[in-house]
Amino acid sequence: MWLADLAGTILLLGLTAYTVLGGADFGAGFWDLTAGGAQRGARLRGMIKRSMGPVWEANHVWLIFVLVVFWTAFPRAFGPVMETLYIPLFLAAIGIIFRGAAFALRGEAATIAEARALGATFAFASVLIPFFFGTVIGAIADGRVPVGGGDPWRSWTGPVPLFAGVLAVAIGAYMAAMFLAGDAARSGFDDMVRAFRARALGAAVVAGVLAIAGLVIIRFEAPGLYDGLTSGPGLAAVAGSALAGLVTLVLVWRGRYEAARYTSAVAVGAVVAGWGFAQRPDFLPGALSFDEAAAGDPTLIALLISIGIAFLVLGPSLWLLFRLSLRGRLDTEFRPITAASRDEE
């Protein structure tokens, strides 16, 4: 019982890390997409590429972590989720191919047409992936995944899943703008700081409005989830998230980007936790509880030991990467990406 709870907590923590770090990656793609024409957007795109270069693969691996913990600890829920939501999951997977390839190869583009094609591919995929993953989360929370497989279309095209998809894009955009503003401030690019600060504040407002609208949608579409989110620990988590969101907004407003990184992570983590509290003890609402979905104790123990090893190995490694990255030890020279520029790094 408590083992399944612990595994579920770790799964949600992994999901939080992916939403914060992977989401920020996707958000950077969103700002790339909306940066404007080749000349106007050149400096923004250059800044995005420079900030993301060293960390995007490590950020992406959180997805693998979430998948692996999901199928090992909760195999009986993993099967139905995959068999029901295969359309958004497959589209997200195809998006991941496009995005990863385009980003890895963009530095090698030599002509205007190539840079544009790769850049557009990267940016479009960056928006679509969080959207489709968001619909998957929304479909699970909305109780649209029965055991044995559900409707491949209606499961993820209801109001709650679609709303979750849009919210995922907005959260990513907000995270990214804030991280990029902080990165620009560290490097002393004042025009970039202004540009991303404005985007962060705008995205924060949009995400906040969406969150409130979302609660209204959930109130009518998924009353059970709504009750969970508005009472007990669910309510505490939602309130905590709102508070952390507001603090983040103030910090960004005042240019305290470093602190804002952490409070924004808390805001996202609290939403994810609130979702977990709201639907507990159900893993697939109306179909499967956490305990029913969970693997046996020996597997859970082995998994937790593995994650313990992972923590010992990865903790210092990640700390090193982010320290080097945040201190600019891995920075490449800043170059605006115009259509014709060629990046040697």
């Binding site: 692996v68 090992t72 994650i307 090893i309 992972a310 990865l314």
Partner: peptide, 13 residues
């Protein structure tokens, strides 16, 4: 998956 999942977790690491 509960039988072989641990190996994938370590592969993820």
């Amino acid at each position: 998956a509960e039988v072989f999942g641990m190996a994938f977790a370590l592969e993820g690491v």
